[in-house]
């Protein structure tokens, strides 16, 4: 069903470069952007501290009469909204890259152990070193990358294929998961509490310094992902066919995995592991756009929508108590994917 439903194709040319996309995916992307924008505005408007719409505008324009209101809008809510969008993009793109490389809709960094590895790095900082929030972010970054290196070393002698990546990833992930459990069990109560908070994945207290770093990383990494996106679409045809049209399949896979791991590690460093987005966003995007592979742009936007929407729900559902955004993404993403699969099966 999905392979046929490509819809009308549009080609944009500029010089000798061209981009080809279906009209439907363009509309879906535009609509998703619109919803993200609306949610972003909602995110700036609502909160427990009373700030009127006028005050929000004044604060964004650099004015405002209540300095605390301006502070909450520009220094707490705005970086949080921006970070939610960026984390969503990173997770969506990373998930899509993994799924295209592994040719498996379950090929997501949550399942392949990369998120777990980032968590191990962070937990070592929280529990063993007792580092502050910056040290924890750094730990997650390093943890994710070391995990990727380990998976690479284990996979390499036989070549990076989808199945092998999935199997090795799951194995490494389970081992690291056990280490994480051990770390938390041995932690002091306070450190364990910090760890539990971090492990749930939260955008609480994500301020500008972290959001800015995230923005730079996501911008560059997304650009990297776009450069190999087209080659990735050819992988399902088989390595030989890909080579025949000038695509070095092995190298493309390796690059995609490196970029994806970098994106997941950066996102996890900022917020802690946010469940399910990397897994669900590409699949949701693919079904919305009706394309055979998820691509890059669709999952990025869908991921942004998922994380931002979930964060708003996390903040407001049980207000004033705040849920961790990871709890909501897990629930929402899961439900949505089940619905989509059910619809898909019925059509068959």
């Amino acid at each position: 069903m999905s392979a046929i439903g490509q819809g009308r194709l549009v080609t944009w040319r500029r010089g000798h470069r061209s981009v080809r996309f279906s009209r439907r995916s363009a509309w879906v992307a535009l609509a998703t952007c619109g919803v993200v924008l609306v949610l972003a505005v909602v995110g700036l408007m609502i909160g427990d501290y009373d700030v009127s719409a006028g005050q929000v505008l004044a604060a964004l324009g650099g004015g405002g009469t209540d300095p605390l209101a301006s502070y909450f809008v520009t220094e707490i809510r705005l970086p949080r909204v921006v970070a939610a969008i960026l984390v969503g993009i990173a997770l969506g793109v990373a998930g899509s890259l993994f799924q295209m490389v592994s040719g498996n809709p379950l090929g997501s960094p949550d399942i392949l152990g990369f998120t777990t590895g980032a968590a191990t790095g962070a937990l070592i900082q929280i529990i063993v070193v007792g580092g502050d929030t910056d040290a924890v972010a750094l730990g997650a970054l390093v943890g994710g990358l070391l995990t990727a290196a380990l998976v690479q070393v284990l996979v390499r002698p036989h070549g990076l294929t989808g199945t092998r990546l999935v199997l090795v990833g799951i194995g490494v992930g389970s081992t690291l998961g056990a280490i994480n459990t051990l770390l938390v069990a041995e932690a002091s109560l306070v450190a364990a509490q910090t760890a539990a908070q971090w492990l749930a994945g939260s955008l609480n207290t994500v301020l500008w310094p972290r959001t800015t770093m995230l923005a730079v990383a996501v911008a560059v990494l997304s650009a990297c992902a776009v450069t190999i996106a087209r080659a990735l679409h050819l992988l399902p045809l088989g390595d030989d066919t890909a080579r025949a049209v000038g695509v070095p399949a092995q190298r493309i896979r390796t690059s995609a995995v490196v970029i994806a791991v970098a994106m997941v590690s950066v996102a996890t460093a900022v917020t802690g592991p946010i469940a399910f987005v990397a897994l669900a966003a590409p699949q949701v995007a693919r079904r919305l756009a009706g394309t055979p592979t998820p691509g890059i742009v669709g999952p990025a936007l869908t991921g942004a929508l998922l994380v931002l929407g979930s964060d708003l729900i996390a903040q407001r559902l049980l207000a004033p108590t705040e849920l961790a955004v990871g709890v909501v993404t897990g629930a929402l993403g899961g439900i949505y994917l089940i619905v989509l699969l059910a619809v898909d099966w019925r059509k068959r």
Partner: peptide, 16 residues
Amino acid sequence: APRRAARTALAVLALL
């Protein structure tokens, strides 16, 4: 190109 993309990705992280 793919190798360059991967290298850039790693460089970004090193800079971060």
